[in-house]
Amino acid sequence: MGWKAILRSSIGTSHQQREMLCQDYGNYEIFDQVLVAAIADGAGSAKYADIGAKLAADTAILHLRKLYLRWFKRQKHQKHRFPENLHLDISEHNLEEILGAKVRKIFQKTLKKIIISLEKYAVEAGYSLNDLASTLLVFVATEQWIAAMQIGDGFIVIGVPEKSPEKNYQILFQPDKGEFVNETTFVTSENALNQMQVCFFSGSQSFICAATDGLERVAIITRANWIPYPPFFQPLEKYIQETNNPEEEDTYILAFLNSERLNAKTDDDKTLFLCFFDRPSEAKSTESSFLDCLKLAKQKFL
């Protein structure tokens, strides 16, 4: 029971031809029933994009791990502190708003930590901050909710079991593109803090898929307001659901990421992250109540 996950990056054919490094990077950690993942896509125009991407993603995870451990410690000592802090008359609607704001604050702080790390690295190495430019996707998920942020493009898609089969995948954010398809925002952009998209989504999702923009055009129907294309996600969900140790059984994912069929569609670096929450069969139904989810979420975040 709990989360299982796999993350793989594959260098794009255009980068291979020009003997460049893979500029995508991703990492994740699972503590208890909480999963934290971060994926960064180094900007092609940035000299040390590969270093920037790694530093951004790792700093995000490090910071969120610290927050979690601090929360965990506090929970132990002050078991009942949290509920008394909340007004009891707040409606479900503004509860989600309050949580959204809280989540925003946490990710804002995370971003600030990341920028400080990048700046520090840039100064020490004699680089400019823009040499370390990358996009960033970060999320924290339990079996009952997901809190996520995105700067730039790429996508996070979750499986939504209770919806109809045609619409059982949901994208959390529209990839951030300007008027022009190749323009996006990076962590190092001046407006990164304002452009950061944040969401809190409560629901009993089991399946989460995140990827860099190298996979956007094959996974998402761009002309229809960025709707996930189910035949892309269904086999991936099936694979992660049926694989006990995905990190060790990665043949399928590697074969897919390096397939000629995929490389004909994209010459960019590609990172694919899949995770699945295994529930015990006798466990409560997937329809856990909205308020249950929120209670859990409050405890994790407030």
Binding site: F232, L236, K265
Partner: peptide
């Protein structure tokens, strides 16, 4: 093993 993902048909 499951089939490989199918691709969205984007212009």
């Amino acid at each position: 093993q499951p089939e490989f993902p199918e691709f969205a048909d984007n212009p």
